[in-house]
């Protein structure tokens, strides 16, 4: 911590004597380290060359702080000699520079982003701005505006942090649950989607073969869904549709396709010939007359030709991205 006194330093400092060149008023708290005391007093524009700082005390020349190799902060100015240790200047200020610039009255410099604002407040904001800009890494804007900027940053960051994952999750959810576009079909009518005409007939059945009568309070529904391809584009869309039974209040019941007379080979599929799906469902008795059938055609395009393995791996631009099953036919009753 303390170096040996330099040879030319004839009278080593009496460490227990008060400082001679520093008014005691400048000290607050414990006696500061030798290199610090000058910083307590604002430096003034300097016009004089280096003269002994305190001419009245020649016996203890300005080299008084020389007597030690003062512990200083590890902050090193780029233009400062660091080795061999330079004798500290007689009245060293922390802001002292070897550059021949006039000293600017010591202004609080923000050393770190986080400690800067309190300092500025302590030092009094009046003297701050121009000195800040004059030297070094000054804060970009006055403190108050920066507070608002930070607050705005917090708000924006929080909004993004919540919003982006939510939006991403929503897009993902919508990839599996598309928004349905409902095409209403009047009772007994025909609904046409993707070159296929659809018809629905709903019967209430007391008993179904193999399943017996419905349990009390429930009602069997026999649903016949008929599809007719209008052209070859309708034929390639002959994948099985999704059929649901829905009450206008939103309650939905499961249906089961128990039979269909579509040809197994898509080549044998005729344009203009009706093919039917036999579907059964069970609903509560009291809503059996109100429920409506929803048919969601499968938008997948089947291949007319039997595909070889090579063809399966070839990219078909039409099959690249199948349309979502978001078109719904609602058959009123």
């Amino acid at each position: 911590m303390t170096g040996t006194p330099r040879p030319e330093d004839e009278t080593p400092r009496d460490w227990f004597a008060p400082r001679r060149n520093t008014p005691p008023a400048a000290q607050d708290g414990p006696p500061p380290l030798p290199s610090r005391h000058a910083a307590a007093s604002p430096a003034l524009p300097r016009r004089q060359p280096a003269v002994p700082a305190v001419p009245a005390a020649p016996a203890v020349p300005a080299a008084q702080p020389l007597g030690s190799w003062p512990p200083r902060s590890r902050r090193v100015f780029s233009d400062q000699q660091v080795w061999p240790p330079r004798p500290a200047p007689p009245d060293e200020s922390r802001e002292a520079s070897t550059q021949p610039f006039p000293a600017i009255p010591a202004a609080p410099l923000p050393r770190h982003g986080f400690t800067a604002p309190p300092r500025e407040r302590v030092g009094g904001p009046a003297a701050v701005p121009e000195q800040e800009q004059a030297s070094g890494p000054a804060s970009p804007s006055p403190p108050r505006r920066r507070t608002a900027l930070r607050l705005a940053g917090v708000v924006v960051a929080a909004a993004l942090a919540i919003g982006i994952p939510s939006w991403d999750a929503h897009v993902f959810y919508r990839s599996g649950n598309p928004v349905h576009t409902v095409h209403t079909v009047e009772p007994g009518g025909t609904g046409t989607l993707m070159q296929v005409a659809w018809q629905v007939k709903v019967e209430q059945a007391d008993s179904l073969p193999g399943l017996g009568p419905a349990k009390p309070g429930r009602q069997w529904l026999k649903i016949t869904v008929t599809r007719t391809s209008l052209d070859m584009e309708g034929v390639v869309r002959s994948a099985d549709p999704e059929i649901k039974v829905k009450h206008p209040d939103g309650r939905t019941w499961q249906t089961e396709t128990v039979g269909k007379d579509l040809p197994l080979e898509i080549k044998e599929h005729q344009v203009g010939t009706p093919y039917r799906y036999d579907v059964i469902g069970v609903v509560p008795e009291e809503v059996a007359g109100q429920v409506q059938v929803h048919v969601i055609p499968n938008p997948a395009r089947l291949s007319l030709e039997k595909q070889s393995v090579e063809e399966l791996f070839q990219k078909d631009p039409a099959a690249e991205k199948p349309a979502p099953p978001d078109q719904v036919l609602l058959f009123r009753r």
Binding site: N21, T22, P23, A25, A26, D28, P32, R36, A38, A39, A40, S41, P42, A43, L44, R46, R47, Q48, P49, A50, A53, V54, P89, P90, D91, E92, S93, R94, E95, A96, P100, P102, A103, A106, A107, P108, L109, R119, E120, V122, G123
Partner: peptide, 19 residues
Amino acid sequence: STVTPSRPGTTTTPRPASR
């Protein structure tokens, strides 16, 4: 250093921020 010695008058209002 070209820093002048501190004047007594100015030292009465130390700026802790500059330390």
